[in-house]
Amino acid sequence: MTDFITIAIPKGRILQESVDLFRKIGIDCQELLSDTRKLIFENPSQKMRYMIVRATDVPTYVEYGCADLGIVGKDTLLEQEKDLYEPLDLKFGYCRLMVAEPAELSRDDDPASWSNIRIATKYPNITERYFAGKGVQVEIIKLYGSIELAPLVGLSERIVDLVSTGETLRQNGLVEVESIAEITTRLIVNRASLKTKYKRITEIIEGLEKHV
């Protein structure tokens, strides 16, 4: 198996765009889009293997070398800070990581005077680093979904979350107050794979680069 290239791809919206992108460089993985419960796909003629994993698990599979390459959002990489190469910005899946709060709070709120605030988020590490960098103490409440709900029911005053169109925020009466980072989808590479399979991996990186 060592002469195969294994790619970890998350299910969901990234999957479709990834398959389209790989097709442009002659790597056929249409099979991933079929309605099946299979988690691993093999293309022996191209010596490629694909694993379907949760987005937050992609960096782990790649860091430990179970996958040579992975496709994952920059938000996940910032949150987990694994020792990986991130040689290519694939440019799709654009969104922003924001601090948001209820519109009525924001009317006379001054971010410069924040101190001891409570934040609900899926991204406790990014949140902690961001506010530590500003010298603001935060109490972080880790949630796994529907972050926008937290300020509406008084769980926290503010949230840190991904925003793409801003529609969910608007419908829940929240507004963006500060931008932490711009997020796009990245190609990540295991360190040992880049060295031991550098010819094939460089080909893939350089091929993809022409199409992003």
Binding site: V62, R191, A192
Partner: peptide
Amino acid sequence: FEGFVGGLGEP
């Protein structure tokens, strides 16, 4: 320098 073996993430 660092030594890498196939299939293992760390040097």
